[in-house]
């Protein structure tokens, strides 16, 4: 079973004859015998996912890494975090996915209006199954807990992903008056309710 280990801004992937998928062009070095091959459209999620991606504009470009050895992956010197999934679902912006192990399924979930504010596409990616996902973030990720009575509001640009039974709505923190002319700078935010974790990065770029 391939093992992903994060070390600050580099991800180490140990391959034992199996396969991982990684963001195209993210390999910085490797040891051993590893083959790199483009996964084709849809990030390997099959034709249906490819179609949905095309419609949603949630772009993702992954490559297959197979063989024996250790691959070092990195993206724009961003911090790396490995999330272990045990059959549950992680929702994450596709641009934050660095790599994932073999038996995970990537799909597209339509997120409604949210994409309009952040320019990150109208849809978001879900990762389901048993395995590991490596995500990158601008600065370390904070996991903020959402519980009933503890709603969390997040800047769309700082939002990385979420996990658990959460529902997300778009909120406007400003009165309609200030939308005309100067905005408040936080014109739209994402409000999370329910029970789960929201991953937030430390930069609002």
């Amino acid at each position: 079973m391939a093992q992903l280990t994060a070390q600050k801004r580099v991800l180490h992937a140990d391959l034992h004859g199996d396969r991982i998928r990684a963001a195209s062009g993210s390999m910085v070095a490797y040891e051993g015998n590893v083959d790199f091959k483009n996964s084709g459209m849809g990030g390997g999620g099959g034709m249906r996912a490819a179609l949905k991606r095309a419609v949603a504009g949630e772009s993702i470009s992954l490559m297959d890494c197979t063989g024996h050895g250790r691959v070092h992956l990195a993206k724009d010197a961003m911090d790396v975090l490995v999330v272990d999934l045990g059959g549950d679902t992680l929702t994450v912006e596709s641009e934050h996915i660095l790599a994932h192990t073999e038996h995970l399924r990537l799909d597209v979930q339509f997120a409604g209006l949210r994409g309009m504010t952040s320019g990150q596409g109208l849809a978001t990616t879900t990762v389901t199954g048993q395995g590991q996902v490596a995500i990158v973030s601008d600065g370390p990720v904070m996991a903020l807990e959402v519980a009933p009575g503890q709603d969390l509001v997040v800047d769309p640009d700082a939002y990385v992903g979420s996990r658990g039974q959460l529902s997300m709505n778009l909120v406007s923190g400003v009165s309609w008056k200030s939308l005309v002319g100067e905005g408040s700078g936080e014109p739209f935010s994402l409000r999370f309710t329910g029970h789960g974790l929201v991953l937030v990065q430390s930069s609002e770029r």
Binding site: Q7, K8, D79, V82, D84, P140, M142, A143, E145, L199
Partner: peptide, 8 residues
């Protein structure tokens, strides 16, 4: 796992 953030 390394680097997993504390839940806040």
């Amino acid at each position: 796992p390394a680097g997993v953030p504390t839940t806040l």
